[in-house]
Amino acid sequence: MHKIMIIEDDPSTREELTLLLENEGHQVLAVTDFTDVAGQLRDFGPHLALLDLGLPGKDGFTLCMEIRRGSDVPVIFLTSRDSAMDELQALNLGGDDYITKPYHIPVLLARINTVLRRARQEPDRLEAKGLTVSLSRGIASAGGAAVELTRNELRILAYLMQRPGEIVSRADLIDALWDDHIYIDDNTLSVNMTRLRGKLEGLKLPDYIRTRRGLGYQV
């Protein structure tokens, strides 16, 4: 059984999703008070959140950013807005999937299960060469000091740490991030790598990520 939080302001959709997920054996919290959604998520501790974009008060984009400041819980955007730009923004803000309404129930359940399965398979803690990274908190630490990482920085560092000693090409790194629904290009990778290295330098690990000229990166 998983705990799933529904952040949806339309009563009929909310009730339909609640019944559907409870029938699948999940414990469901359907939000009806939108004044402190991030706080309710923190208290409930879900394994997954279904998040609409058009909400009273703060929209789904803003709520996703608030959630990501304190939690790495998987977030699936479930919305009637089918704009490619909306989908791109949702995924770049930390969404794990983007599903448009009207949805087909079997497909919705399959994609929910895929996200839940992927979250179970990912370790929460990585350690390599004196550096520790908490994936759920987005924090890297070494020698008693710690820094916060953005989602892109976290995914880049995690991908490299899971392959210690291996040379990872820029193309492979970009492909891996695309597969994880993080849309970046070569220039964006360079910007994130520079910022990431700056943070590692603050942990007194200035050479943690080595550049192998013409080949890629290595930790």
Rank of each mutant, 00 (worst) to 15 (best):
K3L: 08
M5R: 01
I6Y: 07
I6P: 02
E8K: 06
D10S: 04
T18G: 08
L19N: 07
L21F: 06
L21I: 04
E22A: 13
E22C: 12
G25K: 03
F34Q: 05
T35H: 14
T35F: 06
T35D: 12
D36R: 11
V37N: 05
L41H: 02
L41K: 02
R42P: 05
G45K: 13
A49C: 13
L51I: 01
D52T: 01
D52N: 04
L53H: 02
G54D: 08
G54Y: 05
L55R: 03
G57M: 01
D59E: 04
C64I: 04
R68A: 02
R68V: 00
R68H: 04
S71F: 10
I76S: 07
F77K: 03
L78W: 14
S80G: 15
S80L: 06
R81E: 15
R81T: 11
D82F: 12
S83F: 06
A84F: 14
M85A: 13
D86Q: 09
D86G: 13
E87P: 08
Q89E: 14
L91N: 04
L91Q: 08
G94M: 11
G95N: 09
D97T: 05
D97Y: 09
Y98H: 12
K101T: 12
K101W: 06
Y103N: 10
H104P: 01
L108M: 05
L108T: 03
I112E: 08
T114C: 08
R117L: 05
R118W: 09
A119F: 12
A119M: 12
R120G: 11
P123L: 02
D124R: 07
D124G: 13
R125K: 08
R125I: 10
E127V: 05
A128M: 12
A128F: 06
K129N: 10
G130R: 09
T132G: 02
T132A: 08
S134I: 11
S136L: 10
G138W: 00
I139C: 01
A140G: 06
A142K: 02
A146L: 00
E148T: 03
L149I: 11
R151P: 01
E153L: 08
Q162A: 13
R163N: 06
R163C: 01
G165T: 03
R170C: 06
R170F: 05
A171G: 00
A171K: 10
A171M: 06
D175K: 12
L177H: 09
W178L: 13
H181C: 09
I182W: 02
Y183H: 02
Y183K: 00
I184P: 07
T188G: 11
T188N: 09
S190E: 11
S190Y: 00
T194W: 03
G198K: 07
E201G: 04
L203R: 15
K204W: 11
D207M: 06
Y208A: 13
I209N: 01
I209A: 01
R210L: 14
R210T: 13
T211Q: 09
T211G: 03
R212Y: 06
R213E: 10
R213Y: 11
G214N: 07
L215D: 13
Y217M: 13
Y217P: 11
Q218E: 15
Q218Y: 06
V219T: 15
V219N: 15
